[in-house]
Amino acid sequence: MSARRDRRDRRLSRGVQIGFLLGLIALWYFGTAVWGINQILLPNPINVWHELEDVIRSGEFLPDLQVTLTEVAVAFVLSCTSGVTLGYLISRSHYSIRVFEPLLAGAYSVPIILFLPLYVLFFGLGPWSKIALGTTISFFPIALNTIAGFGYVDRIFITAARSMGASDFQMFRYVLLPAALPVILTGLRIGFTVALLSILGSETIASLAGLGHRIVHLAEAMETPRMFAYIAFAVVIAALLNTVVTSLEQRARRR
């Protein structure tokens, strides 16, 4: 009885979700096609769809996508190497954890987007200012999670391994690493997400190329339908990358 009601409830809430989304799209369509909202402010969804098809078919997005992805990749590699290395070194003693961890956590609570003007001054409008910002933002979750991973391994494991005569390498490979890996992987995933977002954001604010730049460019040219198409494209790319990273994390965790 209860199971059947549960199933009915579930179907009903699915219905509400689908209805909500369909309602939004219908509102969008009627607002533009029937009630005459200005096309520059809100383009017709059908127009946007055609633009999106055109963007994808013509391959016009490729150079911008390439710039953005390269920036994200470089920033992520830099913050991974620096964050994991520094985090590991700090986690080697309880004392240095107590000295450095609050410093890093404190710096992380400052909105790092504020560094962007400085980086534009240092590195110019090109990709390097975006890479620097992405690296800075993603460095902190990666370093903090590495410290948390290596620094708080259960003492009993370490004592047991030592008393059974584990070498330093064995200790690292068979005790520390497996214990720390899940936490570090979470840090890497968060780092990747924030790097992607901050690079898209800094491209929006000051840049010469990239997906964020393209969106702003179209906004300034008042080509709103194409801008909507690019926004949809960027959102899908971001969602896709996040899904890939999350599933990679899950898979690496299961090992």
């Binding site: 979700q17 909500f20 989304l21 977002l197 898209l200 929006t204 906004a219 300034e220």
Partner: peptide, 23 residues
């Protein structure tokens, strides 16, 4: 019903629609 929609919105990068807010 609504939590999945909220999480979906939370997960989208709002930074891409910043030009729209200005518009």
């Amino acid at each position: 019903s609504f939590m999945p929609i909220i999480l979906l919105l939370y997960g989208t990068p709002q930074i891409t629609i910043l030009p729209l807010f200005i518009l």
